[in-house]
């Protein structure tokens, strides 16, 4: 499989404070890669750095093009969709307007309309609430909306920042099942950031473990699941 994303020596800063200390990782086209780590490890910062939303250094290659230093909106236009920390919903706009915004950079009207239908088919609850202000949705519905909005870009790479955060277990199961489906059926590659390691290791084929801004461990998910330290610190058995 081809390499879709190649990150080398990635560092990131908030003002003078350094949050990432030279991270290397790769992501195969069509796969799901997980980025695990405790709260404050630097997972969100990594995604922000990839999108050019935080001061960073190092090299980031996406689809064989250097994207470090580019503007966030240009990186989005190259096919990197981001479901950010806190979901990033346009809360005063309607569900339908949120979806339209996801496809803002696309010019194929027919394709956009068809994708909108597919989103509604996948998430019937969004269809019911299409004319409602997004801010009035439940947490799970908002997460569905954030994922749908990101998919409306027709991305090659989907960045997901803790899609399980704050949701009931049943809802989490539903959302993770759909993410797996989207990956298999549409071939969208995903970089999945999670604190919930057991969940993420089930979905992802490959995983990296982040500790205080550096990669502590990496490998196929199956291997990480067997690893003593991962089991004790992140899986709890």
């Amino acid at each position: 499989m081809a390499r879709l994303l190649e990150v080398r020596g990635l560092t990131a800063f908030y003002g003078e404070t350094q949050a990432l200390f030279g991270i290397d990782f790769d992501l195969e086209e069509g796969g799901i890669t997980a980025l695990l780590g405790a709260n404050g490890a630097g997972k969100t910062t990594t995604l922000r750095a990839l999108c050019g939303a935080v001061k960073m250094r190092g090299s980031v290659r996406f689809a064989d093009q250097a994207i470090e230093g580019r503007a966030t909106e240009d990186i989005a236009r190259m096919g990197v969709a981001h479901v950010p920390d806190g979901r990033g919903t346009f809360s005063a706009l309607t569900v339908e307007e949120n979806l339209k915004l996801g496809a803002y950079t696309r010019r194929d009207r027919a394709g956009v309309a068809a994708d909108m239908k597919r989103m509604y088919a996948r998430f019937p609850r969004l269809k019911e609430r299409r004319a409602q202000q997004a801010g009035t949705l439940s947490g799970g519905e908002q997460q569905m909306l954030a994922i749908s909005r990101a998919l409306m870009l027709r991305p090659r790479l989907l960045l997901l920042d803790e899609p399980s955060f704050g949701l009931a277990p049943l809802m989490v199961g539903e959302i993770f099942a759909i993410l797996g489906e989207i990956n298999r059926e549409e071939g969208v590659s995903m970089l999945l950031v999670e604190q919930n390691a057991s969940l993420a290791l089930e979905l992802a084929g490959h995983a990296y473990l982040l500790e205080t801004g550096a990669i502590a461990l990496s490998g196929p998910s199956a291997a990480l699941r067997r690893d003593e330290t991962v089991r004790k610190a992140y899986l709890g058995y």
Partner: peptide, 24 residues
């Protein structure tokens, strides 16, 4: 209009607007 929608989105939530490719 799509441009009008993008303007409202950019005013409300500039970070998310950038993530969908809007030149805020």
């Amino acid at each position: 209009t799509p441009a009008g929608l993008a303007m409202r989105a950019a005013a409300q939530n500039p970070e998310s607007a950038r993530l969908v490719g809007i030149r805020v």
